[in-house]
Design a protein around this nucleic acid. Structure first.
Length: 272
DNA sequence: CACTGATGTCATTGA
DNA sequence: CTTCAATGACATCAG
């Protein structure tokens, strides 16, 4: 009894405190069986009892706050065994564990041994469904189309808390699949982006090489131009037979292709 | 024991 | 307005 139940076990107390392990509740609802040790593997959610797990037990997250009340209501119901799936349709079918202060009898409390691990028989929701005597399998709860799902719900007289659990199971199940798909997409996106990165890296290398090549070509052409200038200016003479200085004069080509020798700093006019 | 990837869950958001 | 899928964030577990 590690859950300190110092407060009076009132309904309000139930509403404000996480309920103990649903499988502890299961013990109450089941026909007398062999006495279970407190650490009965089945009685644990499979997770250690930290805060999130504690609240995940039965009152899972939001519902703990938002719908907690629904789990507390309990209407005794006679199950139409004839309607039930074979595995569940038997006279021993017990009502869902009464959601009464009795349920507060903790199976072990916050320091319960971590006896079940992920992967042990049944998911947490499957165990919750079992504990709450949900008369149909969780995979149906999760995978049935909306209409079929509603039809299924209509076939059984469920308590409010059972209904709430079933809806949560469906929501969690759907979200679990959505999360799996989401992660798959994310990984695919990463792979795709890595490929794109590789492609762009290659493209960058190619462009860098092309630029180097162009730079080299440009340098060669500059040298050729310099030599050409030198050659031309070596042969150019003014009326007095003096050579022109390449520092003071430049060669320019007009639009019509004619070549002019002009003082640097001036521009050849367009020829008509 | 710390780290990391996988998985489940919850809250939120946009369609 | 309600429902639901997608997704970020967090917790837990296993290796």
């Amino acid at each position: 009894m590690a859950i300190p139940v110092s407060k009076p076990l009132s309904l309000s107390g139930l509403l404000s405190e996480p309920l103990p392990d649903p499988l502890a509740l299961l013990d109450i609802g089941l026909p007398a069986g062999p006495p279970k040790p407190q650490e009965d593997p089945e009685s644990d959610s499979g997770l250690s009892l930290n805060y999130s797990d504690a609240e995940s037990l039965e009152l899972e997250g939001t519902e703990a706050g938002r719908r907690r009340g629904e789990y507390v209501e309990m209407y005794p119901v006679e199950y139409p065994y004839s309607l039930m799936p074979n595995s569940l349709a038997h006279p021993n079918y017990a009502l869902p564990p009464a959601e009464t202060p009795l349920a507060l009898e903790p199976s072990a409390g916050p320091v319960r041994a971590k006896s079940t691990a992920r992967g042990e028989a049944g998911s947490r929701d499957e165990r919750r469904a079992l504990a709450m005597k949900i008369p149909f399998p969780t995979d149906k709860i999760v995978n049935l189309p909306v209409d079929d799902f509603n039809e299924l719900l209509a076939r059984y007289p469920l308590t409010e808390s059972q209904l709430a659990l079933v809806r949560d199971i469906r929501r969690r199940g759907k979200n679990k699949v959505a999360a799996q798909n989401c992660r798959k997409r994310k990984l695919e996106t990463i792979v795709q982006l890595e490929r794109e990165l590789e492609r762009l890296g290659s493209e960058r290398d190619r462009l860098l090489r092309a630029r180097g090549e162009a730079d080299r070509t440009l340098e060669v052409m500059r040298q050729q131009l310099t030599e050409l200038y030198r050659d031309i200016f070596q042969h150019l003479r003014d009326e007095a037979g003096n050579s022109y200085s390449p520092e003071e004069y430049a060669l320019q080509q007009a639009a019509d292709g004619a070549i002019f020798l002009v003082p640097r700093g001036t521009k050849v006019e367009a020829a008509d």
